[in-house]
């Protein structure tokens, strides 16, 4: 199941609550180097919160988080900036800087984080935009002039721009048409293959999950309740996983719907 050697990322008993609402209730998860893990789980189960805890955007209340074997749960300042240079992140809502043109959004990490000169960073940005299916004509536009799906792709280009070792994709294909979704799936797969990147993706799109992962974990009620190779997902023997991947309304998972 888990890769040999030091895992790239490890969560041990991570807990996070907001007020008295417990979101993560002891998450244990290991991601090996060059592994592609997809986390599935219902809306509002805390998938986004989990990756924000790893990045230190949210602080875990309890538990430990390791990156490359080093504990990062409570680091701050320079040490955190250095750690974050290993990461690329696609936010669920894209989170593009609306004060900057598209190309500068993509080049931001290269210019600010890695000190690349602007002209060179511009060329890299154009190249990365092309890889997500966006032509150079969008480079000078402002993010607010793009459609939701285009914004998502710009966010994706920004996440991969600095060739990070670890990439988090929070719902990379949501809001894209089926063809573009598949282009993005292929892009994620090839990025992983070519660069040996470790990825952690969140998705509700099972077709995408099967394609971009070699392992799938399911988050339910604040815990990882199933974790196994993608090939085994149809024979998990876990009624929660079965219900989720087949999208049935009837089963052990009860949706909290308030009238």
């Amino acid at each position: 199941m888990a890769a040999q050697g030091t895992p790239k990322i490890e969560l041990r008993g991570v807990k996070k609550r907001f007020g008295d609402k417990v979101v993560l209730d002891g998450v244990d998860l290991k991601i090996g180097a060059a592994e592609s893990l997809v986390v599935i789980g219902g809306s509002g189960t805390g998938k986004s919160v989990m990756i924000k805890c790893v990045l230190g955007i949210l602080r875990a209340d309890e538990g430990k988080i390791f990156v490359d074997g080093e504990e990062v749960t409570r680091i701050g300042g320079r040490a955190r900036e250095a750690m974050l240079k290993k990461f690329g992140m696609l936010f669920q809502g894209a989170a593009l800087f609306d004060s900057l043109p598209v190309w500068e959004n993509v080049a931001f990490g290269l210019i600010q984080g890695h000190g690349m000169n602007r002209r060179k960073a511009h060329d890299v940005a154009i190249e990365k935009l092309a890889s997500v299916g966006l032509g150079p004509e969008v480079a000078m536009l402002s993010p607010s002039e793009l459609s939701g799906g285009m914004q998502k792709r710009v966010g994706l280009a920004r996440a991969i721009a600095a060739d990070p070792q670890i990439i988090f994709f929070d719902e990379p294909t949501t809001g894209l048409d089926p063809i573009m979704a598949d282009v993005i799936n292929d892009l994620i797969v090839s990025t992983v293959k070519n660069l040996g990147v470790t990825t952690l993706s969140i998705t509700h799109d099972m077709a995408s999950a099967r394609k971009i992962s070699n392992r799938i974990a399911m988050l339910y009620k604040g815990k990882i309740i199933w974790d196994g190779p993608t090939a085994d997902i149809d024979n998990s023997g876990n009624p929660y996983v079965d219900q989720f991947i087949h999208g049935r309304a009837v089963g052990p998972i009860k949706m909290e719907v308030r009238g």
């Binding site: 924000k52 992140m89 989170a95």
Partner: peptide
């Protein structure tokens, strides 16, 4: 948050 993740 995005700024932070871009080491800024």
């Amino acid at each position: 948050d995005a700024l932070t993740t871009l080491s800024t």
